[in-house]
Amino acid sequence: MNCDETILLLADYESGRLSAADMRRVREHLDRCPACAQELQLQRQLDLAIKRERRPEPGAHVHTAFHAWLEAEARAMPAPRHVAAAPERTNIIRVSFWNHPATISGFVAVAACAVFALGLVVGSRTGSSSGAQFANQQNAAEIAALREQVASMSQAVTWQTLQQPNAGDRIQAVRVMASADLNPVDVNQLLGLVAFDSNSQVRESAVQALYRYADRPTVRTAVARALVRESAPVVQLAMIDFLANTRDPEATAALETLVHNQNQNPLVREAATYALTRM
């Protein structure tokens, strides 16, 4: 065994991850090679430092917040939820903007309708105990602020919140929506974001907010169509997860498109392949 081979095996030698034969070969080399023996010394110092590392501990509030959230979730979902297996989908309710190239104006119109509903939803939740559902500490304060803001704002101003150039603001708005029981207009609003928002994080948040509506054929179809156009792997993965439980024919077609596209991110293709095996 030469120096190059030995050095490559040193870390594994130290942690005992080598076969008995390799252990012996490395040891033999070390006995007669001062350079590699020195290398091993350095390796040991580092291993020791790693072993003595003070293990980082999360803040105490993380526990409290988690359990409050879990309790709220368990209460909200008393029984296992199954995604409908039967293909109950119909084509009657097609959100108009899916069919138009001039989609943005359609989206804006839908968004405008949705704003008032959002204001109501959000407003009605202000001051309730729904805070427990937002275990997300970093955003809890911002969300509370947004809620307050939204509750007190006029319809037009609320609409502006959802049209903010700042993606962070739009994400907050989506998160507020994610915690509410949405009416069809709100759901369409989220679908609009999934398909057209310029920011991938907003799109991903919107996909996640739609998870509770995955049993609706219109929602599945819309997400499947958006998936075909989506280029950000993070959003693609969220959409694939989302579609993984549906047996929607349109979803299958969208997933197959991804699987067969050599230019797609390998992780995305793998996820799509896996999703297809379940459909």
Binding site: P56, G59, V62, F66, W69, A135, N136, Q137, Q138
Partner: peptide
Amino acid sequence: AGSDDMVQQVF
């Protein structure tokens, strides 16, 4: 602080 938050997000 960010890590506290991310742990919760994972769950």
